[in-house]
Amino acid sequence: MDLFLIAQIAGRGVAIDTTQVGSVVDIAEIVAVPRTEAGVRGLVALRSRVVTVIDTGTALGLDPTPDSVRRAVITRIDGHDYAILVDALEDVALYERQPLSSGLALDHGWGRVGIGLIERDGEPLLVVDLAALVPQYALAA
């Protein structure tokens, strides 16, 4: 049993392994970064740190996450902090991690970020790897 954070990304429920989650915040004003990947929304100050904000929708190859979305999950990858925009957060609870069902065809970026399943009240939720959402790492993967 692992601890998962249940969130809404692009209108769908997903599960995030809490070992990847540094904190959950509402972010302030975003400063754009010209010339970078579309999946990068910009930079934001989180106390004294500068955090790179990831537009989750674009990173998944779906519609861009609306500007009104301010809630984000902070994760640290290779010494850099990223804020992954999420539509909503629902719950933190213990679930049994299951492998992806065979034959499950995930479209768009889902296939790249999905690393497993959990079952919540009988409903299967995709376990999302936050690192795979960051463009640089997504390319390498």
Binding site: V33, P34, R35, T36, E37, G39, V40, L43, A45, S48, R49, V50, T52, D78, H80, Y82, V134, P135, Q136
Partner: peptide
């Protein structure tokens, strides 16, 4: 230093607050 994805643009040397 900024995140690798930002540094990859080649026009930035780092970030600051």
């Amino acid at each position: 230093p900024a995140a690798p994805v930002v540094m990859a643009t080649g026009v930035y040397a780092g970030q600051t607050l």
